[in-house]
Design a protein around this nucleic acid. Structure first.
Lengths: 255, 255
DNA sequence: CGGTAAATTGACTGCTCTCAATTTACGTGG
DNA sequence: CCACGTAAATTGAGAGCAGTCAATTTACCG
């Protein structure tokens, strides 16, 4: 009576390791002199905006695997990612986990707290070392009240998140597993900051939680892609993707 | 060489019927005296805001099946839905179609045009008769520039869209088909305005484009649910759902 | 009442899940 | 630097779920 094909065993990844070598406090953020402010949430705010903050903004470094915040919590803080990559993870009704977004430098997360009474909608977990500024909600709200440009920036970022979510549905939630893996690899290449279409592969469990399959299926497909030279090993965990061939996979049709 | 299991034939639904008994112009919108304004995008704007609109806002009725706008186009208009339901549809890279959202009264669509240079990201198609107000982009931008409350409302709606997109990924894009159908039915019941958990079933092709399966699979699962009385026929196309039992399906686990 | 589109159902293929056994990778401590 | 132990990745075997093709029935519109 344990017959094969249980419904969602493949969603129930092992509990999140909180190796969490504790978050490292880098220092008070220096928004006024931030050298990448033009890419960040606070673009367009005048320097004077940072003179009398309600609560200070901290700059923190999160090691790979650490948790910025968890679904259902409310830390009263929004995070502005300076560098590194974060996975946004949700629980499924049957106890599984699903990654709904990958976000990197320039993105802001936890914006849902801006709507009153809200809690975090996802767990945010660092994939590699993440450098982020932690903006207290109170600070955010008071800036938002005073500077209308900020709401425009928030709107722009929400729209980007929405675009990514839709792309996620269309490319990573549709079709056979091989096609979804190809889409994911192309996405990683696109998000990557490295030259030459080089990407650091995610762990198998993460990839499975992204495309909604078992880890074994992911492993088999990756093995096949490596065998067929669509993925060439550059170094440990790092591979060079054949973009043209991967794109061809995503477009394969019948008839 | 036509062997079974082609990659995405099931995504290629027949071309959208544009029966489109033409959109009916109901009249100039009377925002100032709109009896549901408190539910709409323009909540919180003072009456005076509507005195000198750059371009007039029209109130239109769209019959089932008609197209409000199409992916890639740019009609320079945002739509505020008063009643009825709209499906937001995207093309997949291999020529298929996927529905990424269902939206009803109170929602605003086409907000992506607020970011300069953008085109519609989806095709918006009426599922039943839709009553909507068509807000010219120029009007929207000038109101947005003058009244900061409007950006807050836009932000709130984008956040709602994002929440729905994430829910879509987690509940409709994950797990075996039966579970996804159960989630979809519960969603329809939730969105429905009828009493008694009664819902009007979508066409099979639409349901397939929502959960990402073939129409045949949808049909088989629905037949099974009807047989097992989780769906009781009320009238043509209208069924009463057994919410408890459907929820149980969504939570089924192994182990 | 006839004609077309949609829904249903069956047969069959094959993709992907589960279970299980290795193998590989990696951090720890000697 | 190597040995060890644990976690992750790989691979195989078997079974179930879902896609395709095709035939039929039902629904709906004129």
């Amino acid at each position: 009576m344990t017959a094969g094909y249980g419904t969602l065993g493949y969603m129930k990844s092992s509990p999140q390791r909180t190796f969490c070598t504790d978050t490292q406090w880098v220092g008070r953020a220096h928004c006024k002199h931030c050298n990448i402010r033009h890419l960040m949430l606070f673009t367009g705010l005048p320097d004077a905006a940072f003179d009398d903050l309600l609560q200070p903004i901290d700059n923190c470094s999160f090691p790979a695997g650490s948790v910025l915040f968890e679904e259902g919590q409310n830390n009263e803080a929004i995070f502005s990612i300076r560098s590194g990559m974060v996975k946004m993870m949700s629980l499924t009704p049957d106890g599984g986990r699903r990654i709904v977004r990958l976000l990197g430098g320039g993105s802001a997360i936890g914006l849902e707290l801006l709507e009153p009474g809200n809690r975090y909608r996802h767990s945010a977990i660092a994939i590699n070392t993440v450098d982020a500024c932690q903006i207290p909600l109170a600070t955010m709200l008071s800036l938002d009240a005073e500077y209308p440009q900020l709401c425009q920036q928030v709107r722009k970022r929400l729209q980007e998140h929405l675009d990514r979510a839709d792309q996620w549905i269309v490319t990573l939630g549709t079709g056979p597993a091989r096609k979804r893996v190809a889409h994911l690899l192309l996405l990683m290449i696109e998000y990557s900051t490295r030259p030459n279409n080089d990407i650091e592969l995610l762990g198998g469990e993460d990839m499975a939680a992204i495309i909604g399959t078992s880890t074994e299926t992911v492993s088999r497909i990756l093995a096949d892609l490596k065998r067929r030279r669509l993925l060439e090993k550059v170094s440990t965990h790092t591979y060079r993707g054949d973009v043209t061939a991967l794109r061809a996979i995503t477009r394969e049709m019948v008839r």
